[in-house]
Amino acid sequence: MRHKYILLLLFSVFSSLLYAQDNTVELSVKGGNNMALGNFVALSIDANTVPCKSFSLKGGLQYNFSSDFVAEVRPAYFYDLPKMRLSVEALVHYQPLNNIHNVAAGGGFGLRTRYLWATLGYYHRSITSGKSRFCEPFNLYYEFGVNVLPSVEICDLMFSISNSRIFDLERHYQPSLIVDCMLYPIEKWGVVLGACYKPAGMFNLSSDYYQFYANIGVCYKW
């Protein structure tokens, strides 16, 4: 079952690269530690394409050497206003771990300006194992971020809080704190650096460390 899901999700993203005119592909390696897996290393590839006017497709695949694959796709329709971009997006997320399969699907709205961006949406999660299936009732996903260097052409520095960073879709009370830096020393090539801290139990008012990782990667635009 898992291969069907993964292939379907990836095919939809990467096939659009062939037709689109504004593409970004990012290869990245992630290293960190969390309470469930201990130390981990993960490789990921994700793409962002605009195959036709006002339509974008974002998604990719991550392989964690300590657990398993995660695949995610987000097609979006966007509308540009003078100082902002509004978008409506759908989300499909799939994460197997041994015998347990976590599938989530939903949709949301996005707003992006030079300095700020926000995404807010709803998703539905289903956890299955063999014939057992559990459906969660209601989940919000969100991301709120700020780009502190919007006027520097070769560098972006962004801080965000999110429960839905790509490959890491959590319940609404499980946010992560993220810092991302993108450098573009050469016209089409970029370097991606980032770090993410995820606490547990924040809304239980007894928070504790859960996860930290750093990632480094390269991206290519054409």
Partner: peptide, 16 residues
Amino acid sequence: LCSGNLPMEETMMLLD
């Protein structure tokens, strides 16, 4: 609404 459970990866690991 705001009372938390475990992170997803830990939940899946324990269910397994």
